[in-house]
């Protein structure tokens, strides 16, 4: 039986891990390779690195970070942020990433998902979706550019489209919940999990072990992702896993 995955997320800017609340107020939180090693030892099932560097120099630094992480870790990791072309995917995967995550570029040009999936296989292509509740729509709308621009897409429609095009996994972030530590957006997570036949990673809002339990049971998520609660050692991966095991969740 497949276990539920606990995934620490490291937002990396110019070679350092940062984490904000609702996408703003970035706070320096440490060296990515040091944190990666720490999480590996703690029992993280996987890691996600989001490169939020704006400059070319920042991207180059990120490639070095990916190489360093890959040479030290025996667990899988995904790299996202600034992946706009097939060549960007190649660069990151050659540096040692196991999967790439695409977001804005896939919404601007959905063929990117198809191309990546055909070239590297669906298992390599994660489509990250930033979603925010829209009163008018009565559902969640998909945003691009790190949550700054809205699109016409309703979240489950886009998730289905992404999977049809070859996405192997959906990394779903609730913008309403991100950084709030009040729990994952269970309705959103469940809606997307029920809409697509590929694994869904719930993201945004994790504050404690119970939140992960809810994401798996009510939200039907396959994995839960968190950043600040792990970076600031408010809880540990080991604690979260122990609590989940106690409640009968299959974990590693």
């Amino acid at each position: 039986m497949l276990t539920k995955r606990i995934i620490p997320c490291l937002d990396v800017k110019d070679g350092r891990v940062v984490k904000g609340v609702q996408f703003v107020n970035l706070i320096d939180a440490g060296d990515p390779v040091e944190l990666a090693r720490f999480y590996d030892e703690q029992g993280a099932d996987e890691l996600v690195f989001l490169d939020i560097s704006a400059s070319h120099e920042g991207r180059e630094t990120m490639t070095e970070v990916v190489e360093r992480v890959a040479s030290e870790l025996a667990i899988p990791f995904t790299v996202g942020g600034g992946i706009n072309t097939l060549d960007d995917m190649k660069r990151v995967l050659r540096a040692g990433a196991d999967k790439v995550s695409v977001n804005t570029a896939a919404l601007l040009r959905p063929e990117l998902i198809t191309e990546g999936s055909q070239f590297f296989g669906a298992q390599c292509i994660v489509v990250a979706i930033d979603a925010k509740y829209d009163e008018e729509l009565g559902s969640w709308r998909v945003y691009t550019h790190g949550g700054r621009k809205s699109t016409e897409w309703e979240v489950t429609d886009w998730a289905r489209e992404a999977v049809l095009r070859g996405a192997g996994e959906i990394l779903l972030t609730s913008m309403d919940k991100d950084g709030e530590k009040s729990g994952f957006n269970l309705k959103l997570t469940r809606a997307v999990s029920e809409a697509v036949p590929v694994p869904v990673i719930a993201s945004g809002g994790a504050g404690n072990a119970d939140h992960f339990y809810d994401a798996f049971s009510e939200g039907l998520a396959d994995a839960g992702l968190a950043a600040s609660i792990f970076h600031y050692k408010e809880t540990s991966i080991a604690e979260v896993k122990a609590a989940l095991a106690e409640r009968g969740v299959a974990i590693r």
Binding site: M1, L2, T3, R5, D45, A122, Q123, G168, E169, P197, V198, P199, D222, A223, R252
Partner: peptide, 19 residues
């Protein structure tokens, strides 16, 4: 196939840690 003989769906790819 993504579906068991009993009609229960499961996700493809098989991705993650398994025993």
């Amino acid at each position: 196939t993504g579906k068991t003989a009993g009609g229960v769906t499961y996700k493809v790819p098989h991705m993650g840690w398994n025993h």
